[in-house]
Amino acid sequence: MPVRRGHVAPQNTFLDTIIRKFEGQSRKFIIANARVENCAVIYCNDGFCELCGYSRAEVMQRPCTCDFLHGPRTQRRAAAQIAQALLGAEERKVEIAFYRKDGSCFLCLVDVVPVKNEDGAVIMFILNFEVVMEKDMVGSPAHDTNHRGPPTSWLAPGRAKTFRLKLPALLALTARESSVRSGGAGGAGAPGAVVVDVDLTPAAPSSESLALDEVTAMDNHVAGLGPAEERRALVGPGSPPRSAPGQLPSPRAHSLNPDASGSSCSLARTRSRESCASVRRASSADDIEAMRAGVLPPPPRHASTGAMHPLRSGLLNSTSDSDLVRYRTISKIPQITLNFVDLKGDPFLASPTSDREIIAPKIKERTHNVTEKVTQVLSLGADVLPEYKLQAPRIHRWTILHYSPFKAVWDWLILLLVIYTAVFTPYSAAFLLKETEEGPPATECGYACQPLAVVDLIVDIMFIVDILINFRTTYVNANEEVVSHPGRIAVHYFKGWFLIDMVAAIPFDLLI
């Protein structure tokens, strides 16, 4: 008679799926529990143990900040960024110097990925580790590398530091407007667009060049630039800015003055950032001319202004700041037409079709709590990747769950009947059967004279019903998954307890 339990259901295979997918890609990662103190490590794979030199037993239950890997060259700011990422709910990448158990130093890129439950609360953290440099290539500990984003994938490793954006290309926007319009339909740009040429040739750093990471940081200074100062900065030398009595002219307006920039070969870094931020506020060169004239017309309804409409929906549905990093990277690809469009465009503009998908598509409701890094690593669709929660398995109709209350009560009843059979069957065979043979035949009273025979008949009927119930009862397979398919249940029961239950259900007393 089957006594099969499996009270692990309803099970959740999400954690096993993450481990299996990460292991298949030869990654070095740990999984931490966000619900406990210090976000203790609950799993670390073999790749991480080989990377740091510690065994799994030495890593388990330690804080996922990996303070046991810190050393003299470990930056405090990087460690603080990892700790801050564990307090938030967004994906974050941090470069930090770690030390192995043998004392060797290596520069590592740590990717902190939160995993949320159905309520939107962070319950786990996945920390992925990628070695960037070994100890002989690690720089000085005073050099802070965590304020910069990861290198873009479309640049060669040897040319990542030679990417320079020439400031004269930004200063000569109005001069290039006529050349853009003359391109017409034969050019790649839309009317009114501004073409910015980027020099990728390796050259020595000069005062006129600005690194790509500095251009990325310009967006942080746009908020500090007032509207009046932006307007004066875009007017140009024809209309000098008016300053109040006793007030000095704005240095932001002076930063885009061609006369002032041409007199000296070098520009201050602050002026460069502010000038680029001011130019980015204009949607095209037409807006710059309109600002000089004193009238700013409404933005025209053409394809170039609607190019950012799908980007707005993608940004609203993005799951991490990696989408913004990807957008900034692609927006700086050289030799393309940049349409400086305000994100607050007309909502009635139709979304044009684009061959290049900048932001990841909208994630469906079932995966809105899973970050983009987890979705990318697992390579699963929205119909396959579940949320991290207890999910009731989908069972067929008329199927009994093996952990249901009805099955528990039924098993206790069958257990009592088995005990009765084990006690009274030998007793009936030894004593009652002998008395029946010696006594007179009682054929007239039937079952009324033999109450134990009636009980034995009921017990046999219950055993037959138990066999039928076992054909529709779920079970737990070797992978700790609840199986509810009727065919698989029948095959599993035939290979197991079916023969024993059938022999126990045969009414031998009635056959004798």
Rank of each mutant, 00 (worst) to 15 (best):
T353C: 10
G149W: 06
V8H: 13
A228I: 07
E214I: 05
A382N: 06
C105F: 09
C105D: 10
A80E: 10
I363W: 10
G47H: 09
E50T: 13
A260G: 12
F22I: 06
V222E: 13
A203Q: 06
Y99P: 01
P202G: 06
R148L: 08
L338C: 15
G246H: 15
H254K: 13
T17S: 07
K101E: 01
E130C: 04
A97I: 06
L210M: 15
P168E: 13
A9W: 14
D16E: 09
T329E: 07
K332I: 01
R252C: 15
V138E: 15
F106S: 01
A78F: 01
R5C: 07
R328I: 04
S264Q: 07
G6T: 13
D342L: 01
P150V: 13
A193N: 15
S320N: 03
S207P: 06
V59G: 01
I19Y: 01
R77D: 05
S278D: 05
S351W: 07
D321P: 10
P2I: 02
D323W: 07
P63R: 08
G187T: 11
S284L: 13
P141Q: 15
T174E: 14
Q11V: 13
G345Y: 06
A83K: 08
G192E: 06
S320Q: 11
D197E: 01
S104K: 08
G345D: 07
N369R: 08
S304A: 12
Q84M: 14
A32T: 03
P72Q: 05
P241C: 15
T13H: 15
G246E: 15
A282P: 07
G186R: 14
V41F: 01
G47C: 01
N146P: 06
E365P: 14
L385A: 11
Y54P: 01
P63W: 01
T353V: 14
T216M: 15
P298V: 08
G314D: 09
W154Q: 07
R20L: 06
G189C: 10
G120R: 14
Q247C: 10
F129G: 01
N146D: 03
P245I: 07
I31G: 01
Q61Y: 03
L200D: 11
D287R: 04
M308T: 06
H221S: 15
E230F: 06
A9R: 14
V195R: 06
T337H: 14
T367M: 14
V132E: 07
D213K: 14
A268L: 11
H309S: 11
R281P: 06
D144P: 14
F129L: 05
R73N: 09
V196A: 04
I31T: 01
A34E: 01
V325T: 14
M218F: 06
C64W: 01
P241A: 13
G24Q: 13
V215D: 15
L349K: 14
V59R: 01
P202I: 01
I19H: 01
K344G: 14
I288C: 15
F22L: 14
A57R: 14
G238A: 04
N220L: 06
M291D: 11
E95W: 01
H368Q: 07
N317W: 09
V196P: 01
L248G: 12
S313R: 11
E58I: 01
F14C: 13
G294P: 14
K161S: 06
E214T: 15
F340G: 14
D199C: 01
R292W: 07
T162Y: 06
P310N: 07
A285Y: 13
P245H: 04
S313F: 09
H221G: 15
D259S: 08
L167S: 10
G187W: 11
L173P: 15
N220A: 12
T145I: 06
I18F: 06
D102F: 01
I363M: 12
K166G: 11
L316T: 09
Y43W: 05
I42P: 01
G226R: 07
A277D: 06
F22N: 07
I358A: 07
A360H: 15
R20W: 06
G139Q: 15
R73I: 08
P72A: 09
R148A: 08
I18H: 03
C105N: 07
T13Y: 13
S179P: 08
A211H: 15
P205F: 06
L127E: 01
A121I: 07
T319C: 05
V8N: 04
P298T: 09
G314H: 06
E118T: 13
A190V: 13
L109M: 06
F348G: 13
C49T: 11
A172H: 06
M291S: 09
S179A: 13
R27C: 14
E230H: 03
F14P: 09
C265P: 13
S278Q: 15
V8S: 10
P10K: 09
V138Q: 14
P10V: 13
E289C: 07
L248E: 12
P63N: 12
F163S: 14
A217V: 07
V59T: 01
S207C: 05
A160I: 14
P72L: 01
H309W: 12
N45I: 01
G88M: 12
L315C: 05
A217F: 14
A172L: 01
P249C: 10
S255M: 05
R20F: 05
F98M: 07
H70G: 01
A80D: 08
N220Y: 10
I126Q: 05
H221K: 15
A244I: 04
T17F: 11
A78E: 10
L69Y: 01
F129I: 01
A34R: 14
I82K: 01
V341T: 11
V94D: 01
C105L: 10
T337Q: 12
S182E: 06
C64K: 01
I42S: 01
M124W: 13
V198A: 05
Q25P: 11
R35W: 08
A277R: 06
T305C: 07
A83D: 10
A228H: 12
P251S: 13
S379Q: 06
T13K: 06
D259M: 04
K364D: 08
S313A: 11
N369I: 11
A172K: 06
S140N: 11
D199T: 01
S331G: 08
R5G: 11
G139Y: 06
A40I: 06
R100A: 06
A223P: 13
P240N: 11
A268V: 14
V115M: 10
S278M: 15
S153A: 07
L69Q: 01
S55V: 01
V122N: 06
R292E: 14
S313D: 14
S261N: 05
F163L: 06
G236R: 09
A188T: 09
K364N: 09
S178Y: 06
